[in-house]
């Protein structure tokens, strides 16, 4: 499994986690390059269908991260995301996706180190779980 390079997509909010990841950069902390960030205005904007789309398209793991509870730039978007995550999590088993493949977290603009740690932990976890192939066989059937 040593040559397995997981593909991890991070859905983050603009105000906390995106800025936190910027801080990781300005502090020159190193982390695993397998993660790529997609910027959203708020975790409240994240439609969890996107997570399924990402899995169906070849993602091995996903990070969703935004502002800590009560710190949302838009006051309540992260609570909506959390509620959505709770429901979505219970659906994952049914969908055949290991819940450990999705990491839901809060990283503030001041937590550059936490972001690096989160990415490294997630990358390690996904490396242990191996590639997510379950949906690959559906390709071409018009299902994805």
């Amino acid at each position: 499994m040593s040559d397995f390079n997981p593909k991890i997509v991070a859905f983050v909010c603009n105000w906390c986690t995106y800025a936190g990841a910027d801080l990781t950069g300005t502090s020159r902390m190193k982390y695993s390059p397998q993660v790529s960030i997609i910027r959203f205005p708020c975790t409240g904007r994240i439609d969890f269908m996107l997570l399924l789309k990402a899995f169906a398209s070849g993602a091995d793991g996903i990070i969703v991260s935004g502002c800590h509870p009560n710190d949302c730039h838009y006051s309540s978007g992260n609570f909506h995301a959390r509620r959505r995550w709770i429901v979505f999590r219970s659906l994952l088993d049914f969908l055949g996706i290991d819940v450990r493949r999705v990491r839901f977290s809060w990283v503030s603009a001041a937590e550059g180190a936490k972001w690096a740690q989160l990415v490294n932990e997630t990358a390690e976890q996904i490396r242990l779980l191996g590639p997510f192939k379950r949906y690959h066989q559906l390709r071409g059937l018009g299902v994805e």
Binding site: A21, D22, T24, G25, R28, P33, I37
Partner: peptide, 14 residues
């Protein structure tokens, strides 16, 4: 920069 060159080592993966 912040999300790539500053946080990863020089490599093909970067």
């Amino acid at each position: 920069r912040e999300h790539c060159s500053w946080v990863h080592e020089k490599s093909e993966a970067t």
